[in-house]
Design a protein around this nucleic acid. Sequence first.
DNA 1: AACAACCTCAACCGCATCAGA
DNA 2: GTCTGATGCGGTTGAGGTTGT
Length: 199
Amino acid sequence: MAHTRADGSIIQKQRPAMNELNRGVWTAEEDRKLAETIGIYGAKQWTIIAAKAELNRCAKSCRLRWMNYLRPNIKRGNMSDQEEDLIMRMHKLLGNRWSLIAARLPGRTDNEIKNYWNCHLSKKKLDKGTFNVAGISTQEMRPKSEQTGEEETIIRPSNSSSGEQGSESVFDVNDFFDFSNEKPSTLEWVTKFLEFGSS
DNA sequence: AACAACCTCAACCGCATCAGA
DNA sequence: GTCTGATGCGGTTGAGGTTGT
């Protein structure tokens, strides 16, 4: 959607002007300038990028635009059943840690996943009895401790797929839940989470 | 056709954390 | 150890699109 008219022109969001910074929807020209500047300075020093790009946008705004829209390999469009399944599983494990979840969905942004969750999956989750992603029900997704009273947290590998007929969902728990590349603070958090879940 | 209600998603805001001085 | 600016994250907003009445 992108708040774009049929002729391709961008509709500017009406927001109160503050500090004379540009706000609202990015124009194609702004995108081009930003991408150009990032090409020179790299996607890291956002205050420098914001200044050099001469967009009159704050560093945070530039970063967000890059991360959620301009970055290469951004995947757009519908979530596959497998992606949806993975989001559900990751959310079950991590909660609203969107950036962590996004890190395991190549091409998807934390913002997109967050929006997707709020629009689709949270509703499905609320719809208790009927929610079923890739062949698992909400009941099955619960930790074993909740199902049986035993004190153990288990993330079940998917054993079926609802999207592509006949194709099994190859969900490697060890792969997707491999946090070895995370920052120490994140790793520590995950470890504590898992310890808490199993105690 | 007109209007209302709901949906979607880009973008903003505030806070937490990190890193360097 | 403290301060400060930069960066990252999650929650929320709001405008356009879509669907229902």
